[in-house]
Amino acid sequence: MLRSATTWLLVGQRLGIAAITLVIVSFAVFFATELLPGDVAEILLGQSATPEAVAGLRTAMGLDEPAFTRFLSWLAGLAQGDLGMSYANNMAVADLLAGRLANTLRLAGIVTLVCVPLALTLGIAAAMWRGSLLDRAVSMLTISVISVPEFMVATLAVLIFAVWLDWLPALSYGVNVDSLGAMLRAYAMPVITLTFVVSAQMIRMTRAAVIETINTPYVEMALLKGASRRRMVLRHALPNALGPIANAVALSLSYLVGGVIIVETVFNYPGVAKLMVDAVATRDLPLIQSCAMIFCISYLLLITLADVIAMLSNPRLRR
């Protein structure tokens, strides 16, 4: 397919908007964390600290400078890949984050590999045979899954697979992962839980997007000229539903980076979300800011990617 220069210009424009949004986000993240109540120096020094010691520490940490100056130096550091030092344990934030981020991305990656093909197949199939037994079963199941809290899906999974069937360990970490089998077993529970939660949303949105295009005149035309139901959906409807589907997938996947706090807690999985909640308890501002930036960047990346896919797949968006 030929993509004209204007297409790439529009894609570039979309990337530009994403970059501007990123700056706004970093601004919001920095000043929102500044608003957290509680003084870092006082918390670090404990209750017996003298006012002089607190003032000294504040100066040493640069907390005395105006917020905007600190924002600029923080931003300059970010651009160079320097995330700052953690207040709570004097380690570089980058070192603290690296391992956790790898864990989070590994879990997110596995879940993505399992659930994207699964969700797209089920969603498209449900739309293709709308009103069939399959469609009704899938709709019923997905609406049940998105209606109950995540911890119920997680505890139900523990109850069934770990307690009743005794197939899998209830905790994912702490079990040794030397062999492939052991690793599969360790990741099975969080992956099963997240696959249910994430794909339910994806299936519903995919189904809705495909059904919407099926209802358009040109797809009806395809049916009238004698195309099979399969051809009608896969060749005529699906390419036009690609944009909304990409959007739905992006939204669901962005959830896998920061939204999995419940699953991380229930299965004791050391990911970024848990790190951030712990950081709030210790008022570890650099760590909180870095975590928040990671979530926002991954969200922006996925949404922008979805928008670009939508633009490339739909000529009407390129006008």
């Binding site: 501007i20 986000v25 109540p37 939204g259 706090i261 979300a273 709030v280 909180i288 928040a292 979530f295």
Partner: peptide, 23 residues
């Protein structure tokens, strides 16, 4: 719109946790 879109990127439960843990 830009501001609130950016805000949408923060996972809801996590934002709740952070605020409640802080306040």
């Amino acid at each position: 719109s830009r501001l609130l879109d950016a805000f949408n990127g923060i996972p809801s439960l996590l934002f709740g946790l952070v605020v409640v843990a802080a306040v």
